Amino acid sequence: MDAKDVTEVAAHCAAFLDGVVEADWAAVVPGMGWTVAATAAHVSDCLLWYATDLAAGPVELSTAEVAVRPGSPPGELVRTLETFASVLASVVAAVPSGSLGWHPWGLADAAGFAAMACDEMLVHTHDVGRGLAVAFEPPPRYAEKVVARLFPDAPTGHDPVDTLLWANGRVPLAGLPRREGWRWRCAPLDS
């Protein structure tokens, strides 16, 4: 995955979120215990962390505390998501080929960080929709790309959106129970 994927997924998610800014963002997302606003803020936090981690290289950089305020107005939370996605896309596009950044689950390349960001945006925008009782359907082509990059162990032959949501522990998948524990394969594909 690449910078273009990050910006396109961000635009798709932001368009949905912009359409629900008048809803109750204090609503709790079922099964998560987070409010809609906290879920949206978490996505933006991740986008900025990923940009920083990729730019910093293979050693953890833990000198700063940055957090998006979930109490911000919903429209500003959407703008923050778009802005931080743009920052990450710029870093993904700018790092030299083969660069690795630190992540708690292992070193990741630019494609890995782009995929993790797209996963965060798609799945948590879906969560926001659940919290607001408004359906959000991740675009199948991006769901398929995220699953291929981050979840190579996922079963094949299923709807890509269902597989993405299953891989992230959100739903059961055609005879498989809801996944209780999961982990991304964030390392470069050739490692």
Rank of each mutant, 00 (worst) to 15 (best):
A26S: 15
A27F: 01
A27M: 06
V29D: 09
P30K: 01
G31R: 07
M32D: 11
G33M: 04
V36K: 04
T39G: 06
T39H: 06
T39V: 07
A41V: 01
V43W: 02
D45Q: 12
C46D: 03
L47Y: 05
L48A: 03
W49Q: 11
W49M: 10
A51P: 10
A51R: 06
A51H: 02
D53K: 01
D53F: 12
A55Y: 02
A55D: 13
E60L: 09
L61V: 10
T63C: 10
T63R: 14
A64P: 03
E65F: 14
A67D: 04
V68R: 05
V68H: 02
V68A: 06
R69Q: 12
R69L: 14
P70S: 08
P70F: 04
G71E: 15
G71L: 11
P74M: 03
P74H: 05
G75H: 04
E76R: 10
E76T: 06
E76S: 07
E76G: 05
L77F: 03
V78P: 02
V78G: 11
T80N: 00
L81C: 06
E82S: 15
E82N: 04
F84L: 14
F84E: 14
A85P: 01
A85H: 00
S86N: 11
S86I: 00
S86E: 14
V87N: 03
L88V: 03
L88P: 01
A89M: 04
V91L: 02
V91R: 03
V92N: 00
V92Y: 06
A94K: 13
V95H: 11
P96C: 07
S97F: 08
S97T: 14
G98R: 12
S99F: 09
G101Q: 04
W102T: 10
W102I: 10
W102D: 09
W102A: 10
H103A: 07
H103G: 06
H103E: 03
W105D: 13
G106D: 10
L107C: 07
A108N: 07
A108I: 09
D109F: 08
